[in-house]
Design a protein around this nucleic acid. Sequence first.
DNA 1: TACATATGTAAAACATCTTTTACAGAAAGA
DNA 2: TCTTTCTGTAAAAGATGTTTTACATATGTA
Lengths: 67, 67
Amino acid sequence: MENIIRERRKQGHLSQEALAKKANVTRQTINAIENAKYDPSLALAFKLAKILETTIDQLFIDSKENG
Amino acid sequence: MENIIRERRKQGHLSQEALAKKANVTRQTINAIENAKYDPSLALAFKLAKILETTIDQLFIDSKENG
DNA sequence: TACATATGTAAAACATCTTTTACAGAAAGA
DNA sequence: TCTTTCTGTAAAAGATGTTTTACATATGTA
């Protein structure tokens, strides 16, 4: 599943590590999600949406739906 | 994490099994999620939101946020 | 009663997500 | 050059999500 985390993160002037700390995960987790290695858990998706001041439905692109 | 899947499912007159088939998962998975045994994957959350004609942000209640 | 439908639950196996530890390359500044 | 910051990646271990198989209870209806 695609997402616009990198884009939103940069708009907030956050490094992967800074975002990771805010979300209480590791930098590798943020990196993997940004590069679509795997999808986050629902709980982490909610955290990221909140930190990046958006919604899950806007942050992630369900390819079967929006792509 | 809480959710209103059961409520939305019943509004659509679907059994757990019927919803499971639409979402391509097993009945046990739907049952476990409705009873908050665990959270679905992000992909499944998107599927359920679509089938139940709502959004993830409305279907699930992030207790740290909305509770 | 007998039968079908709907729901709850459990254990083992399998799949996916996350951490830990570690190494590497690119970019920017002193 | 040296150092710092940021990013990409990998393997193993641990945590969480899903399937398979199976049994149980409740409800409605022929």
